[in-house]
């Protein structure tokens, strides 16, 4: 999964909840309890939250408020969830996802 690394503090501003550790694609990421997963991943420098089914393009969020469904990630094994609408909890396991798309249903 293509990601651009940067220091976690680079985009972080003061404030927010207590620091907690979550897992993203198997690596530990420091997040703030209660913030949306989207904020934690963006601050950690993770850019491609999912890769599209047809064109295999990296995508992140567009609207940030639950409308565009372009911040889809897999959370504790459940796919296609909006990172902008799901708050961080300690121990959460997030995976950036390769979208199955409708073709995934052809052989189901």
């Amino acid at each position: 999964m293509p990601t651009t690394s940067r220091p976690a503090s680079d985009l972080r501003l003061p404030g927010g909840g207590a620091a907690v550790t979550i897992s993203v694609d198997g690596s530990p990421v420091v997040a703030r309890e209660g913030e949306p997963i989207l904020a934690a991943l963006w601050a950690a420098g993770i850019r491609a939250l999912h890769t599209t089914a047809q064109r295999e393009e990296p995508r992140a969020f567009f609207c940030g408020i639950g409308i565009c469904f372009d911040c889809l990630v897999t959370i504790d094994g459940e796919s296609n969830l909006r990172a902008c609408m799901t708050p961080v909890a300690p121990g959460m396991s997030i995976e950036t996802q390769r979208d199955p798309g409708w073709q995934g249903f052809a052989h189901a």
């Binding site: 972080r12 404030g15 904020a39 850019r47 969020f61 940030g64 372009d70």
Partner: peptide
């Protein structure tokens, strides 16, 4: 559709609501 291209509302939400 590139990551990092977002609505003005998204940019505001990040900075104002989430301190990122």
């Amino acid at each position: 559709t590139l990551p990092g291209v977002m609505t003005a509302g998204a940019a505001q939400t990040l900075v104002k609501a989430y301190a990122v």
